[in-house]
Design a protein around this nucleic acid. Structure first.
Lengths: 172, 172
DNA sequence: TTGAATGCAAAGGATTTGCAGAGGC
DNA sequence: GCCTCTGCAAATCCTTTGCATTCAA
């Protein structure tokens, strides 16, 4: 399953979708006469096995090691992640100099709080923000395609916990 | 002068500040026993001569060429930009894989519309956004340090003008 | 069979670093 | 004079690319 069934207060409600990510990706491949390879299947399974944010490096560590079945090389991981973004399965954004990916398909639009101490990403949804975004765009005759809001600061846990680590430069 | 005096509808109203960027940077240097070098002066003048967004490459092109007085090497430009960010003179954010800088000192908080066609950045201010940001943070017991909102799309000029260029991946 | 996909090694672009010499204070 | 700064060259990090080989359809 692609969507965790355990209730988790940190996760937003999944959106109802007709197809599994696998089925949707198959459609995407067929529509472009691309091939359903073992590597693409392996990466897709790995990506949708857990719901979290990850970068290419983390995905590589999570995939089977070299020599194991299901192993995928670094260039292919990068290529495949780009395909998932194109296919609408993943969204990509940049944090601290590297690309971070998150589930898009079957998951609602949202934005993030980013803890500069523990680097945790906390998701939140805001209708109001969308309205505000569209109003601003309208007033500039600007046609919106997407937006990205990241609020940086210190999360609840890190405020309570050990002393705060000060960084020289914000990461966003 | 650091703040342009010509009225420009695309610029927000400058904030009243007691010191010039030069004076403020001198204070910063002295407070850290850092030195007021010709290179730092040259970069500072260049950066505050015009109000716009720029990256390290563009700044290098704008600075005097190698051999000319006021020339600054690439590593020093990078080092100096970091100091300006620390000193609160500049803000930095990442767009399309490179770091972009803009005036912070003497300039009000704002966010951006980003045209994915002509790569223009349009500034806007929204009290409402700040309120919304603080509400969201509050509800997560999150201590805000900063935020970054970029709305991507197509600007007025590019909508009217020539046909739109489609990109494979959004840049934010 | 045949074009698409993979893995390797190598390139790429932006940024950073080690270090010897230059230069503020 | 001391200690910071600079410039150079080289390294680093993340990501992409060229190309011969492998493989799905």
């Amino acid at each position: 399953m692609s969507i965790p069934s355990e209730p988790n207060p940190d996760l937003l409600e999944p959106v109802k979708v007709a197809l599994t990510p696998q089925q949707r990706f198959n459609d995407y491949l067929q529509s472009r006469s691309m091939r359903n390879t073992e590597q693409r299947r392996s990466v897709l399974d790995c990506v949708f096995k857990q719901h979290d944010h990850f970068d290419a490096e983390q995905l590589l560590e999570r995939l089977p090691a070299k020599g194991e079945p299901g192993h995928v090389s670094r260039p292919t991981v990068y290529r495949t992640l780009g395909e998932f973004v194109d296919a609408g399965l993943l969204r990509k954004f940049v944090l601290d100099g590297r690309s971070v990916y998150e589930h898009d398909y079957g998951y609602p639009q949202h934005d993030h709080l980013y803890c500069i101490k523990c680097e945790k990403l906390i998701e939140f949804q805001s209708e109001e923000l969308l309205k505000l975004r569209d109003e601003v765009a309208n007033s500039h005759q600007f046609q919106v395609r997407s937006h990205r809001l990241i609020i940086s600061g210190v999360c609840q846990d890190c405020r309570k916990g050990r002393r705060r680590v000060r960084r020289k430069v914000d990461l966003i």
